[in-house]
Simulated assay, not measured.
Amino acid sequence: MARRDAIFPEGRQALYEINKYSAAIRSGDLLFVSGQVGSDAEGQPVQGFRAQVEQAFTNLGSVLAAAGAGFDDIVDVTTFHTDPERQFFPDVQEVRLKHFGDAPYPNWTAVGVNWLAGFDFEIKVIARLPAAG
């Protein structure tokens, strides 16, 4: 079995070491990004739902950039919400459209959950990495 090609955003490796997982794994031309939450540099939740969503997207952007990718390379999205009926519109919708721009949009699955370790929103994605060169 090939060794995992782990990707880490600059400055946040310690958080992944503490929790024993990778920010993302590259497999061929695909990038599987672990769930990103609205955490600050120390791993603590930022205050307010909208702020958590914006920070989760910022953290996601950092992981994508570390792999040489961006939001346009995302093909599949899964989000987790502690109160999906109240949380998806308008906060998540506005933030996601700011990052994904115009159609065609990536696939999207939103899942309601009852626990996110002190967070209210999490986003994980699969991206196709741009060709090198």
Rank of each mutant, 00 (worst) to 15 (best):
R3H: 10
R4D: 14
A6G: 04
E10S: 11
G11Q: 00
G11N: 02
A14N: 02
I18Q: 15
K20A: 15
Y21I: 05
A24H: 00
R26Y: 07
D29C: 03
L30A: 08
L31K: 08
F32V: 11
S34G: 08
G35S: 15
Q36F: 01
V37M: 15
D40Y: 13
D40W: 12
A41M: 10
A41F: 09
Q44V: 08
V46T: 01
V46M: 02
Q47Y: 03
Q47A: 11
G48R: 09
F49M: 09
R50V: 05
R50E: 02
A51M: 06
E54G: 05
E54S: 06
A56W: 06
L60K: 10
L60H: 07
V63A: 02
A65K: 15
G68Y: 04
G70R: 06
F71H: 07
F71Y: 14
D76C: 08
V77N: 09
T78Q: 03
T79R: 06
P84E: 05
R86H: 15
F88D: 14
F89M: 14
V92S: 02
V92E: 05
E94I: 14
V95F: 03
V95P: 03
R96S: 12
R96I: 04
L97T: 12
K98P: 00
D102V: 05
Y105V: 02
A110V: 12
G112N: 10
W115V: 11
G118I: 04
G118W: 05
E122G: 12
V125R: 01
V125W: 01
A127N: 01
R128I: 01
L129M: 07
